[in-house]
Amino acid sequence: MFHWLEKNPFFFSVGVFVVIAFAGLIEILPNFAEASRPVVGVKPYTVLELAGKNVYKKDACYECHSQLIRPFKSETDRYGQVSLSGEYAYDRPFLWGSKRTGPDLHRVGNYRTTDWHENHMWDPKSVVPQTVMPAYKHMFTNLADVDTAYAEALTVKNVFNTPYDAPNGIKLGTLDEGRAAALEDAKAIAANMKNKDVKDAVARGEIPEIVAIIAYLNRLK
């Protein structure tokens, strides 16, 4: 039998495939139903938060910052309560990261403010002198892509039944309503910022990336 396999490349390939596919089948699939259930109180992202999450991805914050607090006292002391599976139910993709060049951010919204982020993104060294993080000044001029964020929210609502527009939930509505809501949220954040250009942009109805990413970071609690 073994020898026959070795001589028949087609069945040999099938054999290899079965052996390697099996682990994935057993390990991953059955876990799906369980792990995707949100814990009580977790809401889907607003359009502005999603736009901020996309900035987080675009400038690859996840390369240096984790979003996963492990069950050790040293970690809960430093970052807050242990991360629960259900808290990530609306994270597509997940942003746990794999390296802490900088600190964990899963609950950064609990202990950092809009003001702090603004200073830190403009010039990290002015806040933390020994930091190795680069400044992200371009976030103050680049505009966040609200339309794409809205499209993402609409997609997850339609395809994965993410509870937008549910009673007492996050309202999504039409594209225009989504844009208006994002701008509304952006104004609230810009009110706590001091950068003149950013304030002007928001007043004109534009949303710089920095506003969106702060909205996202503030939501991480």
């Binding site: 995707s36 990530y88 993402e152 994965f160």
Partner: peptide, 21 residues
């Protein structure tokens, strides 16, 4: 999936959170 809104390059993962991980 949204009927032509936003960037054509953007996509959203089929899996979420822990599953995606």
């Amino acid at each position: 999936a949204s009927g032509g809104i936003g960037s054509i390059f953007h996509s959203v993962s089929m899996y979420s959170g822990t599953n995606d991980a």
